[in-house]
Simulated assay, not measured.
Amino acid sequence: MGLSSGMRGTDGAVDRVDCQAGTLAFHTIGDSRIKEVCGSGIVDFIVALLKSNHLDTSGRLHKKNALLDYFAERSQGC
């Protein structure tokens, strides 16, 4: 399992992710509802996860992590 590409840079694509006061802030093209993440958004997301200490330098999410719990709860049944 891995990541091969992001979505096309159209409305609803997350194109920027910032870490502000320990919270991840997402910006979408067209200020639309989030659909998926485009390539530049993926890079920003990784940087934000590193800065916020959710991701280690090997690319793994920290095991005891509120962010990991958040995504795990929402991925049930996928």
Rank of each mutant, 00 (worst) to 15 (best):
L3R: 10
L3H: 02
S4G: 06
S4Q: 14
S4K: 13
S4Y: 15
S4E: 09
S5V: 14
S5A: 12
G6D: 02
G6Y: 14
G6Q: 10
M7L: 09
M7E: 12
R8S: 09
R8I: 01
R8Q: 05
G9R: 12
D11K: 09
G12H: 04
G12P: 10
A13R: 02
V14K: 05
V14W: 06
V14M: 07
D15K: 15
D15S: 13
D15W: 10
D18N: 02
Q20S: 01
Q20W: 07
A21I: 04
G22R: 04
T23I: 10
A25I: 07
A25G: 00
A25L: 05
F26A: 00
H27N: 14
G30D: 06
D31E: 07
S32V: 04
S32I: 01
R33K: 12
I34F: 15
K35H: 15
K35G: 08
E36P: 03
E36K: 11
V37G: 00
C38F: 11
C38A: 13
G39S: 13
S40N: 08
G41N: 06
G41R: 05
G41M: 01
G41F: 03
G41A: 04
G41Y: 02
G41I: 04
G41E: 01
I42Q: 04
V43K: 15
F45Q: 03
F45H: 08
F45C: 06
I46L: 15
V47H: 06
A48Y: 00
L49R: 12
L50E: 05
L50P: 06
L50V: 09
L50H: 11
K51C: 10
S52Y: 07
N53R: 07
N53I: 00
H54M: 05
H54I: 01
H54C: 07
H54T: 08
L55F: 02
T57H: 02
S58V: 03
S58C: 02
G59H: 03
G59T: 00
G59R: 01
G59A: 06
R60T: 13
H62K: 15
K63Q: 12
K63I: 14
K63L: 15
K64C: 13
K64V: 12
N65R: 04
A66H: 05
A66I: 05
A66L: 10
A66N: 09
L67K: 04
L67P: 07
L68D: 08
D69S: 14
D69F: 10
Y70P: 00
F71V: 15
E73Q: 10
E73D: 14
R74T: 06
R74S: 08
R74C: 06
R74Y: 05
G77N: 11
C78M: 15
C78H: 04
